Structure formats: C-alpha cells, structure tokens
Simulated assay, not measured.
Amino acid sequence: MTAANDLHPEQLRSLLHFYADAGVEWLLEEEAVDRIAEFEAMRVARGTPAQRETAPAQQQARQAPSRQEQPRSAPPAAMPNVAIPDSQAIAEAEFAANSARSLDELRTAMESFNGCNLKTSARCLVFAEGKANPSIMVIGAMPNADDDRDGQPFSGRQGAVLERMLAGIGLARTDLLLTNIVPWRPPGNRPPSQREADICRPFIERQIALAEPNHLLILGNFAARFLLRSQETIHQLRGEWREIEISGRSIPAFATLHPQDLATAPISKRLAWQDLLAFRAGLQG
C-alpha cells in the first residue's frame, strides 16, 4: 500500500480532490487502531471463568511497555464544532447581502461569509459570471463538480449542453449572466437542505437585485420551486411566464428543464425545446 508520504504533492492534491468529489468530508480515525487486539480482548472476555482470570494478566503483559519504549503522549483533544443557529446564520447572510452595493462587493461579502456549512467542503465560491447588467439572467440550483473545479457556473458537459440550448434560440453565453441558487457545491452533488437554501436566499436575491435583469430563465426543479416559492414540480411549473418580486421590482420569469435533466432523461429534450421556443417568443413579444 502506498503511504501519503510517498506521494508527490501533485499526486496527493489530486487524490484529495478525488475524495472531495466522492463526498468524503473527514477521516473517521486520526490514529490506527489494532482491531485484532480488540477482537482478542472481546473473545477472552466472553470465555470461561478460568480464562477471564488469566486474561487480564496476559493482556497486561502484552500491553506493558518495555523500559526502552517511551510512553505515547495522548492525542490533542479535538475542537468541538460550534454550530451557528439557523436564525443567526440567515440574519448574518441578510446583513452581508444587503450591505453590498455592487456584484463585486457581494462576491467579496460571500467569500467572507462562514455561516453555511457547504463552504467547508467546497473548493471555492462559484459566483455569477457573464454580462454585468444583462437582459437575461440564467439561474440553476447549485454548482456541480466541474463548476467547483473551474470556479464558474455551468462548466464542463452541462455548460456545453446549456450553450447548445441557448444557441438554438439565438442566445450566446456571453450575452447573459449565469448563476446558481447555492454558490457552494454540496458534497457528492446532493441536493441542498432546506436550511442551506434559506441561508443562501439573501445572496441570490441580492444578485438578482444588483444585476437588474429584464428576464429570468430558471433551470430545474430545485431552482424553480425555490424562486417561485412553490411545491409543484418542474413539469408543472415549466413552460409558463410568471412574475417574481425582488426588492420591490417585478421580473418576468420562465422555468424549464436543467441540462442535467436532459442527460438523465433524453426524452425530455423535446419538452425543453418547446419551452425554449416559448421563452424566445416571450422575449420578442
């Protein structure tokens, strides 16, 4: 077995990134445990009374350190994780978001924010990218592994699919502002929890308010239910224009399927194309 000390720094970094992409967040044990010795002690403890009498002496003899062996110092006590109450984290997010007067200031505020646990496992903050004051703002749910690696939304294969979707109705990525509801990738690409979504709400709403888009294109079930404040599914919410109130401003919003939905169920491409045609007609109307 190859030890970590035998790896080149670049190899070790790649290995840690692989573990992060797989959803590994921490090691279970900081020191090796002799499971064989533990099993032997349990077997002796469940043996005959004579064995129980001799077992402590034998175990003591096995565990007694030699005179040359230095006693092992106890490992330092782990620092307890201090959880921030949900209400406090949301209040801090609201204060940080409302204090920003530009998208650059908002990005700085989000980089300094530590109230969301997703930040501890993500490689980086995935902030909005594209045109600063766009006519159209595209909003997804959360960064995936490609986004987290590249530091930009809709990267990799899903980004390529989205670009083809937009090109079909005459739109280019450079003309839009792309972002996600949650700016940090959840471990293992799991859906964000309700607590995580509530903490991130002030940031995405402030992004929309500062960008001042004329239209919103919402991608996927999570983002549609979140922004439209609905319990209906994406198949019930898609294909229709709705209004969203952000900072006292009403913005037309249109929900459709996420590129990941098309990869999972290719038959949905027909529905997405119908939605995109309806979205383009609404822009021209």
Rank of each mutant, 00 (worst) to 15 (best):
N214S: 15
N214I: 00
H215E: 11
H215M: 03
H215V: 03
L216W: 12
L216P: 07
L216K: 07
L216C: 09
L216D: 10
L216V: 09
L217Y: 07
L217I: 08
L217W: 06
I218N: 08
I218M: 06
I218Y: 03
I218R: 05
I218W: 00
I218T: 10
L219C: 07
L219P: 02
L219K: 07
G220W: 14
G220C: 09
G220T: 12
N221V: 02
N221H: 14
F222N: 01
F222S: 02
F222V: 04
F222P: 00
F222K: 01
A223E: 07
A223I: 05
A224C: 04
A224K: 04
A224N: 07
R225M: 09
R225D: 04
F226C: 04
F226Q: 06
F226S: 02
L227G: 02
L227E: 01
L227D: 01
L227H: 10
L228P: 03
L228Y: 11
L228A: 08
R229N: 14
R229M: 08
S230K: 00
S230T: 01
S230N: 05
S230R: 00
Q231D: 12
E232K: 13
E232C: 02
E232M: 05
T233L: 04
T233W: 02
T233F: 02
T233E: 04
I234P: 04
I234Y: 06
I234K: 04
I234W: 12
I234Q: 05
H235P: 00
H235Q: 08
H235M: 05
Q236N: 11
Q236W: 00
Q236I: 00
Q236F: 01
L237F: 12
L237V: 07
L237N: 09
L237P: 13
R238E: 02
R238M: 09
R238P: 01
R238K: 09
R238S: 14
G239W: 07
G239P: 09
G239F: 10
G239E: 03
E240L: 11
E240C: 11
E240M: 05
W241R: 12
W241G: 03
R242Y: 01
R242S: 12
R242A: 13
R242H: 04
E243S: 15
I244S: 07
I244V: 15
E245W: 01
E245V: 08
E245M: 13
E245A: 11
I246W: 00
I246E: 08
I246N: 14
I246Y: 01
S247F: 05
S247I: 03
G248Y: 13
G248R: 11
G248S: 13
R249Q: 15
S250Q: 13
S250E: 10
S250M: 13
I251D: 10
I251P: 10
I251K: 08
P252A: 06
P252V: 05
P252E: 12
A253S: 12
A253R: 07
A253P: 04
F254L: 11
F254C: 14
F254A: 14
A255I: 11
L257V: 02
L257H: 11
L257Y: 15
H258G: 07
H258Y: 08
P259L: 13
P259T: 11
P259K: 05
Q260H: 06
Q260L: 15
D261V: 11
D261L: 09
D261C: 10
D261A: 15
L262S: 12
L262W: 02
L262N: 10
L262E: 10
L262C: 10
L262I: 15
A263Y: 03
A263S: 11
A263H: 04
A263E: 15
T264P: 00
T264K: 13
T264L: 13
T264E: 13
